[in-house]
Nucleic acid binder design. Structure first.
Lengths: 232, 232
DNA sequence: ATTATAATTATGTATAGACATATGAAATGG
DNA sequence: CCATTTCATATGTCTATACATAATTATAAT
């Protein structure tokens, strides 16, 4: 009885009961008050445990009704999106990026639509090749909205990567991300020293500040790349 | 002053200060005690707000030190992995799946290794084609470990999809998921009525019960498929 | 029978106070 | 000067109590 991080202990114990099938999906589990008696602790402590279990999708909780084991535990995968440089350096490789393109242009209609730009705002268009130990691993194609990024045209993106600059300089209020696959075009294949048509993993990301889109980016990964995450 | 879900309100207020740049990345924010004074509430309430901010990656908290705005806010994407049937039906389409293969076999060495099977356990190998309104959308290739799935050989997987059966019948203790892209083989292209070599989005998932792998699955999505998620 | 109202109840949240724990900084000793 | 110990402090957690809120159930009114 040295330390008693009760809420964690209770959490693990209850989780065990669910995993071991002592409490089956759909079952109503005892009320907080009863569990508090069982575990000799305050209801608040049980509450915290149950809240954690509900957060991880194992319980469905409703006032006046109680907590029941989720019948269809929708499973969540949480992906940590790192700055590419950090990811590379964590693998012990040397990071470098090359600015391959930079222009002040009107975005293609498709991009304008997605970024919710109805006026004819000229965006900063930037392409970067990210490399680990001189091997190209990601080709980044990005549109930046100068309206929400004052001074963006003056930044030297050879010294710092766009993503890193953004992460350090602007906070976004929301964002979305999507994953898909694409066949490499001739030009892209050259960048990766791969074959035309090779399947590449693509991440498209948009970040917003209120109603205004800050940036839209397409990350084309080298063929063979695979992104891992834990299921919770 | 009707309702005062204080911790949420405080959470949002503090989040605003970070997003608006009032507190910059790296800044030490006031201690819980001080914030409690400012917001006229108990320290526990502030604590809950700060904990939520830390959970979402906006704050780094350390005892004796305080809470500072994360300098390199690694961003998290939470993906909800739905049962395919539900996903299809939610889009208003008719779901159907076809069992294309079923065998009791030794898994390929690569799969055995990943599933941590050192003995010569024969697995249940099952392939399924998932369809929305009769259009094939996902080709599922799966290995199931009968050791942790007693009775698995008796289940009729034409009636219920494997994933759905698993979700309803076994709890896993941990799992991992990875995303990549693959070129369609000739056989796969036929299934999707697509071209050989078309890039397809692939999800590979493994779930574990303790040290034993329950199942390993590869979900090959139709070319053009894109998976969306919110950034938090 | 149907609808409106009140009572009941499990969870949700807030609070003050206490102790636990990690850790930076200061004091101490070699 | 460096290593060790002590101390101070912000966060982490627990408790008992109280009230809020949602949702079911019982009751009353139409």
């Amino acid at each position: 009885m040295t330390t008693r991080k009760s809420w964690q202990i209770i959490h693990d114990e209850l989780r065990g009961r669910i995993i071991d099938g002592i409490w089956q999906p759909g079952d109503l589990i005892p009320a907080e008050e009863q569990l508090a008696v069982e575990f000799q602790c305050a209801r608040a402590t049980v509450n915290r445990s149950l809240r954690a279990l509900a957060d991880s999708g194992l319980l469905d909780r409703r006032r006046r009704v109680g907590s029941r084991v989720a019948t269809e535990p929708s499973r969540y995968a949480t992906l940590k999106i790192d700055i590419i440089r950090l990811e590379v350096e964590q693998r012990g490789a040397k990071y470098r990026h090359v600015l391959t393109e930079r222009a002040q242009v009107l975005a293609p209609e498709r991009v304008q639509y997605r970024m919710n730009l109805n006026d004819g705002t000229e965006l900063l268009y930037i392409c970067n090749l990210h490399m680990a130990d001189e091997r190209p691993i990601i080709y980044e194609e990005r549109w930046l909205n100068p309206v929400v990024l004052p001074g963006i045209f003056d930044v030297n993106f050879s010294a710092i990567s766009v993503n890193e600059w953004l992460v350090r300089n602007v906070m976004f209020t929301r964002g979305d991300i999507s994953f898909c696959a694409a066949n490499l075009t001739e030009r892209e294949a050259q960048l990766f020293a791969a074959e035309v048509g090779d399947a590449a993993f693509v991440i498209e990301r948009m970040t917003w500040q209120g109603e205004q889109c800050i940036t839209s980016v397409r990350l084309l990964h080298e063929p063979g790349f695979s992104m891992r995450a834990e299921l919770i």
